[in-house]
């Protein structure tokens, strides 16, 4: 059983978080400013899609970040189960809402991109469908924390759910792609265009870094909140014990 009252590593973490938080926040802001400037004003319009290619700069990073966050959750869940590290399952719990927001954004921007491209808001494109399933995996993970009161038990069960989900992500991705090629032999327009020219790639990478640092900044803060919330719960339990 994880020993939560032994605050050895949480205090180390709190010190690390205190040190890193301002730096990471600053880098996030800079990356966003540069990224948005590059995406909106510097990147050339696509000869075929004209201006709508700019949607890619918020769509692809969001999809990429959604997948990255789920991977972070799966890794920390594995650490929680294998090494019983008291912070690992809280790391996964605090990351989930952020990943959910990114995945949601990738779906919304994907649909909005679909309208000018294919004339319909939602098209069952392989990538969009996989992101949709990932969105459901996030909901399932967060529902576990609501359904189970005892935090220790919720932590263990959610770690198992995250890991089982993570094993299935590639299988689902593979089956959806396979299903996509089955019904639409070759979708005329690939999501991110035939070849990415540097003028498009650079803003994409900068925006991708911006989303990643945003996740890091939010995750550090959310994790600190979880550590404090646990300390709060312990103290309240102790108080209740005295009454």
């Amino acid at each position: 059983m994880a020993r939560f009252e032994k605050f050895a590593n949480p205090t180390q973490f709190l010190r690390l978080q205190g040190f890193l938080q301002p730096w990471v926040t600053a880098i996030t802001i800079i990356l966003f400013v540069v990224g948005l400037y590059l995406s909106l004003f510097v990147a050339p319009a696509d000869y075929q899609q004209k201006e709508t290619v700019r949607i890619m700069f918020v769509h692809v990073p969001a999809a990429w970040a959604g997948l990255m966050v789920y991977t972070v959750m799966a890794l920390s869940s594995a650490v929680a189960i294998i090494f019983r590290h008291p912070l690992a399952d809280v790391a996964a719990k605090s990351a989930a809402p952020i990943g959910l927001a990114f995945t949601f954004l990738s779906l919304v921007t994907g649909a909005l991109w679909g309208k000018p491209m294919w004339g319909t808001y939602w098209v069952w494109d392989a990538r969009l469908t996989s992101m949709f399933v990932l969105f459901l995996l996030y909901l399932g993970y967060m529902a576990i924390w609501q359904a189970i009161e005892d935090p220790h038990r919720a932590a263990r069960i959610s770690s198992i759910v995250a890991l089982v989900g993570f094993i299935n992500v590639p299988i689902i991705k593979f089956s959806v792609d396979w299903w996509n090629t089955l019904h639409q032999p070759a979708s005329v327009f690939k999501m991110n265009g035939p070849a990415i020219s540097p003028s498009i790639l650079i803003p994409l990478l900068v925006m991708g870094a911006a989303y990643s640092f945003l996740f890091l900044a939010l995750h550090l803060l959310a994790l600190k909140t979880e550590v404090n919330a646990r300390k709060l719960r312990q103290m309240q339990l102790a108080e209740a014990g005295k009454v």
Partner: peptide, 16 residues
Amino acid sequence: LVSLLVLPLYVPVLIF
């Protein structure tokens, strides 16, 4: 909760 957790995992079985 079971439906929300399990149905996404049904996707590969359904497709194939």
